[in-house]
């Protein structure tokens, strides 16, 4: 599902003394099937952008066109388009409420009148896609799961209806390091397999670089940069003024770049790829270096 922003502005509390402009005249087109990371400081407009795209908010000015339908100050996205959009908001596990994980994941499909067998089949497939074995999890109470499992079950409840556009707002926030790593692995696989359009809001630059094929960088409500992850890495210093800070992974990349500037030609996007690159470059293994 493609998304187009045409001169979009959004003001929270417009017309009240508390009015806060969140997004100012943003124009951008996103092709169907792209994974777009939204970066920027807190309050830079990235979450507002995602909410506008998902039809959760309407523009104060300009228009958002999603799958051919329009959302503006006067017009809401029509329900048939909104049904094709999924939103994983912050702490989605707070919305788990059914007695079993299976019922919870199937909730949206049941509400859409999908026949019970198909609901179950698709709920199982959705659980599997986020790495929760349906045999083990389908009949369990969602409240007995770990934090990371709850998060993945809640995400399965969005993926289950195969949205063509999915908006994620900080999906790994609050997860322990292992749970975070596991969730990203599964999201990566889901994005690759199903090719939904993805808008992925994050503070974690490593996640943006690993998952996205395009990065939108926001600053004070404006679209400050629209780049590929490789460009973001190459010009990282220039983007510091928008609040980006190097993660340990990026610091390692810089350290490699000082030794071997050609790393920037096609920079590795994951820690494992960085280790592979270094091994290839430094001839580990082939020279029989002792471990």
């Amino acid at each position: 599902m493609d998304v187009r922003f045409e001169g979009v502005s959004h003001v929270y509390g417009a017309g009240t003394p508390f009015a806060r402009p969140a997004l100012s005249s943003v124009t951008v087109s996103i092709a169907a099937g792209s994974v777009v990371a939204l970066l920027g400081r807190s309050g830079s407009g990235k979450t507002t952008f995602a909410q506008l795209a998902a039809g959760l908010e309407r523009p104060t000015a300009g228009r958002v066109i999603v799958g051919g339908a329009e959302s503006s100050a006067e017009r809401r996205l029509p329900p048939d388009v909104r049904r094709r959009i999924g939103a994983v908001l912050q702490h989605p596990e707070h919305q788990l409420f059914e007695e079993t994980v299976g019922r919870d994941v199937g909730f949206a499909l049941r509400r859409r009148g999908v026949p019970p067998d198909e609901v179950e089949r698709r709920a199982r497939a959705a659980l599997f896609s986020v790495g929760l074995d349906p045999e083990a999890y389908f009949a369990r109470s969602p409240f007995r799961l770990s934090g990371g499992e709850k998060r993945r079950a809640a995400i399965a409840g969005v993926l289950v209806y195969e949205p063509e556009l999915v908006v994620f707002d900080e999906p790994t926030a609050g997860l322990d390091p292992e749970a975070r790593e596991r969730l990203i692995e599964h999201l990566e696989a889901v994005f690759r397999r199903r090719r939904p359009t993805v808008l992925y809001v994050t503070h974690r630059i490593d996640e943006a670089i690993r998952l996205a094929d395009r990065v939108l960088l926001f600053d004070a409500g404006r679209l400050a940069a629209d780049v590929t992850p490789a460009e973001l890495l190459r010009r990282f210093e220039a983007y510091r003024r928008f609040g980006l800070r190097p993660s340990p992974f990026i610091r390692a990349l810089f350290a490699v770049g000082r030794r071997a500037p050609d790393v920037w030609d096609d920079p590795p996007r994951t820690p494992a790829a960085l280790a592979d690159w270094l091994a290839a470059r430094l001839g580990g293994g082939r020279k029989g270096a002792r471990p």
Partner: peptide, 22 residues
């Protein structure tokens, strides 16, 4: 320990060692 990973630098050193760079 469930849930925990070593910090990035420690993991990178491990990954490199596993690839033959001690």
């Amino acid at each position: 320990l469930p849930g925990l990973l070593p910090p990035f630098g420690v993991r990178l050193a491990q990954d490199l060692t596993a690839r033959g760079i001690a």
